[in-house]
Amino acid sequence: MSAHPAGELEGVTVHLGKFEVLPSVSVAFRRGEFVALLGPNGSGKSTLIRSLLGVIPVSAGRVRLFGAALQQFRQWGKIGYVPQRFGAVSGVPATVEEVVLSGRIALAKRLRSYTEPDRRAAAQALEELDLSELADRRVSHLSGGQQQRVLIARALVNEPDLLLLDEPLSNLDVEHQQDFAKTLQRLRESGSTVILVAHALGAVEKLVDRAVVLEQGRIVHDGPPSTEHQDDHAHHVPLQEPVGGTGADQHRIH
């Protein structure tokens, strides 16, 4: 097996409008690593993983997934992505199963209906996230935490080798956070790479191998995790997403 990193940014610069969000960032995520991406709001955490996935264009630098340049990368079934969302509701009704099944699009045959294996994979992901009983419910009728689990299930439906999670914990109650930590642990043991953007690690803290801390788009810490990089306030109240500015003073780097 080759030793290419699961994901790699080399001198990547990203602009949003005229604003430089990432100034020439280089970082590699090795296979099987469990990385926490920490930092205050607006520090470029989401931008970093979105540029790694090619969701937003980079203005300079190179992006590689599993050793392949992003433009040449085709094995999208290896990727699972949970974007930062306030909910999973769209304009037209959709059931929990329909949303989770849509994650299979990366592996499913183009221009065909989803097959039985696709449906089985969806059923398994639903089971994993404790959503089986809600499979036929409209997503818009679910609570925020349930909707968050739907988005996680969609990302897990392909048993991804690289899982990117953008603030997946903020809407989950304590019980489901612990379940989710078990799921992540299982993925980690099976050799998957996990990149987790978070304010507070809570139940998943013990899984983290490496913490990468961003501040104003720059990597200011890269190494073993320590609690000082986490949002203190959110750490004690894991159910609530801190609103607005998490002051930079809480993230002072020593």
Partner: peptide
């Protein structure tokens, strides 16, 4: 199914290679 994925969540659809 491609259109559903792209309309439901454009960002994730991109990350699925659509």
């Amino acid at each position: 199914k491609e259109l559903f994925a792209a309309c439901y969540d454009e960002e994730v659809a991109r990350a699925c290679g659509l």
